[in-house]
Computed example of a mutant assay.
Amino acid sequence: METKLILQNDPLWKRLQNFSLDHPNAAFPFSKKLAKEENWTSSFTAKAIEEYKKFVYLCCTLPDGASPSEIIDKVWHMHLVYTRNYWEEFCPDILQKKLHHHPSPGGPAENEKHRSWFEETLKSYREIFQQEPPEEIWKQDLKPLNKQNKSYFGKIALLLGSMFIIFSCTENSSGGLGIFFTLIFFFVIVVLIIKTFSNKSGSDKNNTDAGGDGTFFYTCGSDSSHGDGGSSSGCSSSCGSSWGGGCGGCGGGD
């Protein structure tokens, strides 16, 4: 009860709750566009927007920042498209801070750090909002990054092993093995070509907004021109799309 009372009396929380992403006069408002783009139901979209507001609150109030889930990140990306609403109303009037979107260096070390930050975000969510983060919005796939590759190469090894046994059992084993190794050569070449184009396609898709490394940084810094007294404090949040989710941490001033 005490936590909920603190939230109710928090000016930032009040402003977020009273803020609507849908323009009252829009024939095709934000929520409908988001639902259409992501193929979500209207009820799921409303839930995602509600959780997006909670994420923003965490991002701007926690000392270590906050990390978005994939679903929340999609809402955020869509909001960033509405540049006038985002930069001229949401940031200056509601957050009274700037909330930027910058690329990070990426890499395994960053991904591991992001993974830890996301767990901290969920922990803070439970403490502040006194409830479990809705699984349909906050659930992340935290499987090891190389699991798919291990499965992929395991199947190749099994196939090659089967081919070796078949050809080694032929009457002319030396001739059979010669054909076997020739087939291996061409098979490996084909696999490498397919793998190259597959990786390129996936990389192009994932890095549209990341400048080529698939990782994002979000910075929430103070804006001295909008009623926060020119404070130099701010928070940074980051999202590593290579492991499918969000991450975050606090940084210096904007």
Rank of each mutant, 00 (worst) to 15 (best):
G154T: 07
H226C: 12
S43K: 03
F186N: 11
Q130S: 15
G211H: 09
V191D: 13
T3Y: 13
T170D: 06
H23M: 07
G175F: 15
G251I: 08
S69R: 01
S151P: 01
F180L: 10
P108T: 01
S162R: 07
L159G: 12
K155A: 15
F186P: 10
P92K: 02
E89M: 02
S42M: 10
H79C: 04
K54H: 06
V75S: 01
I184F: 14
P63C: 12
S116P: 00
Y125N: 01
P24L: 07
K155F: 12
A35L: 06
T215S: 11
G107N: 02
I71C: 10
H79N: 07
A48Q: 04
K47T: 09
I94A: 02
T215I: 07
Y218E: 09
E171F: 14
F185Q: 14
A66H: 03
E88Y: 06
F164Q: 06
G251N: 11
C247F: 06
C220K: 01
G252Q: 11
S168W: 12
L16A: 05
I184W: 11
C239L: 05
S224K: 12
E37M: 12
E37I: 11
I156G: 01
I72T: 05
E112K: 02
G107E: 01
K205N: 10
S162A: 15
E119S: 09
C250E: 12
D209S: 14
C235G: 12
N199H: 11
I128L: 09
R126L: 01
D10E: 09
D209C: 08
K205P: 02
V191S: 12
S151E: 14
N172R: 05
L159H: 12
F55E: 03
V81T: 09
S225T: 13
G248F: 02
K113P: 00
F180D: 11
Q140Y: 10
E38N: 11
E136T: 02
A27K: 08
G251F: 07
H77N: 07
M78Q: 10
T170M: 15
H79D: 10
P29F: 06
D209P: 06
L5I: 14
P144C: 06
Q140H: 05
H226N: 07
Q96F: 02
E2Q: 13
D213S: 10
G245W: 00
H77S: 10
S232A: 11
K200M: 15
K195Q: 14
V56S: 01
N146A: 05
K200R: 15
H77C: 04
F186I: 15
Q130N: 14
S43T: 09
L62K: 06
S242R: 04
G202Q: 13
Y86T: 00
A66E: 07
K143T: 13
P11I: 09
F129C: 05
H114W: 03
Q17D: 10
S173T: 15
R126W: 12
S241Y: 13
F118S: 05
L177E: 11
H77W: 04
Q8A: 13
N18V: 00
I49S: 06
G253N: 08
